[in-house]
Structure formats: structure tokens, C-alpha cells
């Protein structure tokens, strides 16, 4: 039972550390976001002397938060859909056709993950200038995000395609199903969780992405991370930065919880069985 004691001590320790590294910073952020401008929060006071939602309301009405939210939440789903569409054929080939060099192809798909994002951003911009395609920045960002996050979509969908069972396809075929009916009956049920997961992952990544949005989009396109960056840099007002930080974090938590559920239900080891 010594082990059990040790485990409990370790757990207490982790929870205490988590308190320091998660809880305190967030509480501080919440407190700062509630500081009322009428009275500054000085170092000698434990809590802000006057608290209100003034900063929240003010940021919402008078900063570029609204357009930034709009931009981020338009770019991200577009990038997610584009990435899914681009990944689909490749994943089909990687998941269902045995061709020589398939492993090499799978590895090559990870390429965007090893090139530092700032390099992609800077020299993708150079490429855009070169091609004279600088007119529509949001489109450029969507395209860049879609390609840079393709490894995730391809990986997830390839696994999904691998779990489609050949006997299901054969059975559908045996029962006289055409191409579309076969896809609906045999492929779609196995692919659906993968499709959702891929959309969600690229969505989250795109919402968070800073380098490409910052370099490719500047100065016209402002996403939330870009806004936050300037709020932490040249326009640093601590309470405002606190509001922005919290706005950026909250949806993530929900999305991730959703994703966790989704990934659990799509666990290929549970779904595939044998055959």
C-alpha cells in the first residue's frame, strides 16, 4: 500500500503545481480584465479596487476585435474545408491503394511540419509578389493555411480510409450498388468521424496561427492572434490584453473538448475489428 501513498503524494504535487502554472495565471488575467479604469490596480492592493466589465464592453465596441473575430472565424472554416477537399484524393490513394513508395509519400506529407512557419510565411509572401497575386490577402492566407495544415487532414483521413472494410465495399458491390451508393454505404460511415476531426483540427490550428496571418496578411488583414500580438506589443494596455487573451482561449477549450469526444468515438482500434 506504500505505492498508493506515493501515488497520492504525487497527485497532490501535480495538482499544487497545476495551481501555480494554470490557475494563478488565469485568475490574474480575469482580475486584470475586470479592472475599472476609474481606479488603477496598484501593486499594494490584493484585488483591483474597482471592478467592472467596462474593459470587455469597451474592447468589444471600440477596438478592432469585432472585425478580427469576423476575419478569423471566416478564414478558419474556409481553410478547414479547402484542406479537407485537397486531402481527400491523396488520402484515398494512401489509404486504399498499395503502390510502391507509399511510405515515402506518407512521410513527404509531413514536410510542412518541419519547415519553420516564419519561413513559410515570409517566402510564401515573396512567391505571391513574384506571381503578382498580392491583391486578395485573405485568399492567400486561406490557401497557405490549407496547405500548411494538410499533413493533419491527410493523416487523419488516411487512417479513416484504412479502416473502411473491404468486405463492406464488396458486400455493397455484390448487392449491386453503383459508385455513389457504394461510397455512401461502405465509405461514408467509416470516414465521417475522420472528416469531422480533420475539419476541427485545421479549424483550431488556423484560428491560432500567427506567423502566416501576420506576415502574409499585414497590414490589411487582422486576425485575433495578430491583434493580440499588437496588443501585447506596441499597444500594450494590460487590462485590454487580458480581455483579448481570454477571448482567444475560451472557444478553444470548448472546441478541444468536442474534439476529444470526437477522437474517442473515432478511435480506429475500436471501430475496425478484424477483417
Amino acid at each position: 500500500m506504500n505505492r498508493l501513498r506515493l501515488n497520492n503524494i504525487l497527485m497532490a504535487l501535480v495538482i499544487a503545481l497545476a495551481f501555480i502554472w494554470l490557475f494563478i495565471p488565469f485568475v490574474m488575467a480575469v482580475l486584470w480584465s475586470l479592472v475599472d479604469p476609474s481606479q488603477p490596480w496598484t501593486a499594494d492592493k490584493l484585488l483591483p479596487p474597482a471592478m467592472s466589465f467596462y474593459r470587455w464592453v469597451n474592447m468589444w465596441q471600440n477596438s478592432s476585435l469585432q472585425p478580427a473575430l469576423l476575419t478569423s472565424y471566416t478564414l478558419a472554416p474556409s481553410a478547414a474545408i479547402l484542406s479537407l477537399l485537397l486531402a481527400f484524393p491523396t488520402s484515398f490513394a494512401l489509404g486504399r491503394i498499395a503502390f510502391p513508395g507509399r511510405e515515402v509519400a506518407k512521410t513527404l506529407c509531413l514536410l510542412p511540419l518541419v519547415v519553420p512557419p516564419f519561413i513559410t510565411a515570409v517566402f510564401f509572401t515573396a512567391l505571391l509578389y513574384r506571381l503578382g497575386l498580392t491583391a486578395w490577402r485573405p485568399g492567400a492566407i486561406i490557401f497557405a493555411h490549407a496547405v500548411v495544415f494538410l499533413p493533419f487532414s491527410i493523416r487523419i483521413l488516411t487512417v479513416s480510409f484504412e479502416t473502411v472494410r473491404q468486405d463492406h465495399i464488396d458486400a455493397a458491390r455484390d448487392l449491386g450498388a453503383g459508385h455513389w451508393a457504394r461510397f455512401k454505404a461502405a465509405y461514408l460511415p467509416a470516414l465521417r468521424p475522420g472528416i469531422y476531426a480533420s475539419l476541427l483540427i485545421v479549424f483550431i490550428q488556423s484560428i491560432e496561427e500567427f506567423a502566416i496571418a501576420f506576415i502574409v496578411g499585414s497590414p490589411d488583414v487582422v486576425t485575433i492572434p495578430v491583434l493580440l500580438y499588437s496588443a501585447l506589443g506596441q499597444d500594450y494596455v494590460r487590462p485590454n490584453a487580458a480581455v483579448l487573451s481570454l477571448i482567444l482561449v475560451i472557444p478553444n477549450v470548448f472546441l478541444m473538448l468536442f474534439l476529444e469526444r470526437l477522437l474517442k468515438s473515432a478511435n480506429p482500434t475500436l471501430a475496425s475489428g478484424k477483417g
Binding site: L86, F88, P89, T90, F92, I97, L108, P112, L150, I154
Partner: peptide, 11 residues
């Protein structure tokens, strides 16, 4: 052709 839009674009 299948690899074009995904892997092709990446490369």
C-alpha cells in the same frame, strides 16, 4: 492524379 492536389501541392 490522386496525389496531385494533396501531396503535390505540399511538395
Amino acid at each position: 492524379l490522386l496525389l496531385m492536389p494533396g501531396l503535390g501541392l505540399i511538395v
